[in-house]
Simulated assay, not measured.
Amino acid sequence: MQAQITTPMAEAVAPAAHGKAGPSRLRRYLKNTLKFLLGLIVLSFFANWLWILSGSNQWELKIDEGGTQVYTLKAPGATMLKIRAVMQTKEFTLSNHLAPLLDTSIQDDCARWVPGCLSYKILTPWNPKTQSNVTMWTLGMPGPFSPREILLQGQLTQDPASKVLTLENIAVPNRIAPNDCCVRLSHVHNVWRYTPVGDGNIKVEFVNDMDMGGAFPKFLLNLGAPGEIHKMLTVDNPKLLRQEKYRNARLDFIDEGLAK
């Protein structure tokens, strides 16, 4: 059997060789990690570019549950989906549906109406003659994103023949000076439409067209918004409208028409 001879020189060389291999593996790891991250960033930008260019510009049905249908529309060049929800109900009159417009107490607990709401301010009270108001919602966002301010002008119109009520909420971001605390939305055009269809039934339509602005990951909104809007129409809003103060409302500037 051949004996293994270990010399002091060999003992000195072995650790040195091992020491070189450690930093070399670390450099390769860091290099590969950097390549992966750069590739991921490039892929994300490419996917976002393709998403912006995509879109049929047609309404597509996404949810059909509980008598409520939710559609989405992707327009080429847009980052956000438009969402349209439709349902019918005979539980509420036109006045019942619109009564919250006159309810100043929403300022005390706005989160009941909009999840994540930090504050709701009535800047210009509802005017029955012009059938308009100006309000501002401030919504909290998950960190590290800044709160969002939604400064809206509400405008109500009613067709004298069909009695269809249309409430448009449009962003007016320059109505007051900006706040450093928040990102103020520049694009909002949300529409509520109430159509009497006979026998006390009212067709309720809601179109959500808004962009949260800033660096917020818009794919999260596109992913979750259809389900949230379905829940709003079928669960959240009816529950709020069943309060006695809305049930007993009768607004003189609204013609109930066929909804009687």
Rank of each mutant, 00 (worst) to 15 (best):
M1W: 15
A3I: 13
Q4D: 10
T6I: 13
P8Q: 12
A14R: 14
P15K: 14
A17C: 06
L26V: 08
R27L: 15
L38P: 00
L38Q: 12
I41C: 01
V42H: 09
V42P: 01
L43M: 14
L43A: 15
F45N: 03
F46S: 00
A47V: 00
I63R: 02
E65R: 07
G66W: 03
V70A: 05
V70E: 12
L73T: 05
G77I: 08
T79I: 15
M80K: 14
R84H: 13
V86M: 07
Q88E: 11
E91M: 05
L98C: 01
P100Q: 06
S105P: 10
R112G: 15
Y120N: 03
P125Y: 15
N133C: 11
V134G: 06
W137V: 04
W137R: 02
T138S: 05
G140P: 13
P147Y: 13
R148P: 07
I150G: 00
L152Y: 03
Q155L: 09
L165C: 13
L165V: 14
T166W: 10
A171R: 14
N174A: 05
N174Q: 09
R175Y: 10
I176G: 06
N179G: 05
R184A: 11
L185R: 09
V188R: 07
N190V: 01
R193T: 15
I202A: 13
V204K: 04
F206D: 01
F206H: 02
V207D: 11
M210P: 08
P217H: 05
P217V: 07
K218M: 11
G227W: 07
I229G: 02
H230L: 02
K231F: 03
L233F: 01
T234S: 11
L240M: 15
L251M: 10
